[in-house]
Design a protein around this nucleic acid. Structure first.
Lengths: 353, 353
DNA sequence: ATTAAAATCGGTAACGTACACGAATTTATA
DNA sequence: TATAAATTCGTGTACGTTACCGATTTTAAT
């Protein structure tokens, strides 16, 4: 460890150069009133000249404030454990920045109950937070909520899915079209030209269904772009229920015995896997998300590929984006599309969600 | 922004509870002499009781020291641009922690010149650094170097490849065996039982060759574990030279026309791709590393899959591990095996190395 | 010209921690 | 018991910044 040598740095140096007190420099830096136009200009010039970078340690230490963020994401349910990873990402981010007086409070809503979304959203707006991270599962409600945030000048970050034309501080999540496109590309290696393929959408909520459609578009887009002749079937299952999914899948495979690949457009792929295992089918199964229930089937190679986009990392980055913006006053990327990861039996052990 | 309320925190609070001055508390915290056994014990008890977490802002601000790290990695050469990503990762880490008075200095060696490694290593040891990040390309030399580090009590982190039985602060890099294993798993989806497969090792230096062998072991391990009957050929090319590689590959494919997949065990896959493109072959090509020269072929689907392990991220994490250990005094994972990423044409755009 | 009001600025106490200096206390030595 | 030596501890200053208080200067009003 070396000792630092030069004496005058930061505001003190600026003050020295401008022949004013550090109090005045501080006023200029924070655009406060009480400085004549001349000295203000002079100080600003010096700041530019010496390329002054404020010392964040001193800054955070002196400004004895607590920055508070709120998160609004679905609760972990019996239906899916998907939202466990984002929560862990949030916690990881918080424990990294809590030393800088940042606190994060989490609010959870029920993915099958839009009222619960509104209720939690109102709770958030009552207490004044400095930034909000949310998964805009319900489109209308999210627009409403974020509009109110905008009026209150509270920055918000979307994760997991975006709301077009609703400008946010940042979106961090998948490019849904591309993830479908990738699935198709992968499948193109697995089937012959004459094999049949099926898309399986499983969703109860209309909202989430939109996301699935984007993936489906990407999926079909690939086949179109590459003039592939494969026949593509599709079924929509609107109940998340073992027996229903079993029946529908079984019907599908009976009607089209030449189906070689099933592409399930979300994390519900384990339900299909469950049936395939029972029936002893050797259809290739591709689905989404690194969930416990899916990994089991991945290890058995009932599910052959999982497409994942690190939901935990998304939430982590989301909190960090708020931190960068609110605390460090740094610019933040408007869109961060997560890499599309391909997980199979032999690379899942080192994967971190 | 909320203001913080409670007055007594940190050392002050401890001092209050122990009825001593903060100076004494400070001495206990830093295991300095000059404290009676009684009060020391008392203070330590209080520290435990209130679960005292030192404020890093105050700590870093007060300790007016500069922590200096050195890195020792191969230089970017004409032969490969592989080491550009790690360098960027190092820079990214540095710019994140430079606010905490951390500086990083980079030293580069020539991968084909073990003397250059020794020369740079000596430079590093002359100036006393607080931590070292290195890619131990030359095994003997690295052991020698790290032994000297240990004597000087300088912690070091390995990236990219490990040296077994040379205990380091941390290793961050691939699990080579598994990456080969994964490649085989992937290939198992792409070939029929009777198709032939070939492994292509391209390496000039004996050292690097060991890494390739680990991958090859993993690769063959998969076929053995799953009782797959595919014939596996193998060639070693000890010159990194377009025409040599062209000739060797061409011979291989002529001798075994039933080869369906080529597995190149490192980033030199672009040389093979170059030949395949010329010859118009439609053999499936799998290789390593997200390099510019490879991505071009990936887009053309001459290279079909690239296996990547985020070398940039490795270096970033390596510097961060040193930071955590040296500055924050936090525990550090001994081994961090990077995820094994599968990159193809349609997911490379969002990939970050 | 006098006084009041407004604008401009300097000085300084914090924030939580590190570290040096010297004061107070205890122990050892004669 | 007196004195020296050693031990134990408190105080003060510093790190770079924020934010407030009050002093000084300028401008406005009479």
């Amino acid at each position: 460890m070396k000792k630092k040598e030069n004496q005058f740095t930061g505001v003190k140096e600026i003050a020295r150069l401008a022949k004013v007190s550090i109090g005045t420099v501080d006023r200029v830096i924070h655009n406060r009133t009480g400085v004549s136009a001349k000295t203000r200009e002079l100080i600003n010039q010096i700041i530019k000249d010496i390329n002054y970078q404020p010392n964040l340690l001193g800054r955070r230490l002196a400004s004895n404030k607590i920055t508070q963020f709120a998160t609004l994401i679905p609760m972990v349910s019996k239906e899916t454990t998907f939202w466990r990873a984002p929560l862990e990402g949030i916690d990881r981010a918080e424990s990294e920045i809590k030393q800088y007086n940042v606190k994060v409070e989490n609010f959870f809503f029920d993915q099958n109950d839009r009222d619960s979304f509104n209720k939690e959203a109102n709770k958030i707006l009552k207490k004044k937070y400095d930034g909000i991270l949310l998964a805009p599962s319900f489109i209308e409600e999210s627009i409403n909520f974020t509009n109110r945030c905008k009026k209150l000048n509270i920055p918000y970050v979307f994760i997991d899915s975006d709301i077009p034309d609703q400008p946010s501080l940042s979106y961090i999540g998948p490019d849904l079209y591309h993830s479908g496109y990738l699935a198709a590309n992968l499948i193109s290696y697995l089937v012959g030209k004459r094999d049949r393929i099926a898309i399986v959408n499983i969703s109860r909520q209309m909202e989430n269904y939109h996301h699935l459609l984007r993936k489906e578009e990407g999926f079909r887009g690939y086949f179109k772009d590459h003039n592939l002749p494969n026949k593509i079937e599709k079924i929509d299952i609107r109940k998340i229920n073992t027996s229903v999914i079993k029946k529908e899948t079984s019907n599908l495979l009976k009607n089209f015995p030449d189906i070689k690949v099933l592409f399930v457009t979300n994390s519900k792929v384990s339900f299909v896997a469950n049936y395939l295992k029972e029936s002893g089918s050797d259809v290739v199964l591709i689905g989404y998300d690194f969930l416990k229930e899916n990994i089991g089937f991945l290890e058995e190679e009932i599910i052959n590929f999982l497409i994942c986009q690190k939901p935990g990392e998304q939430a982590y980055k989301g909190i960090m984006a708020l931190y960068k913006h609110c605390v460090l006053k740094l610019p933040v990327d408007e869109n961060t599309f997560m890499p599309v990861d391909i997980i199979m039996k032999s690379n899942h052990i080192y994967y971190s969600n």
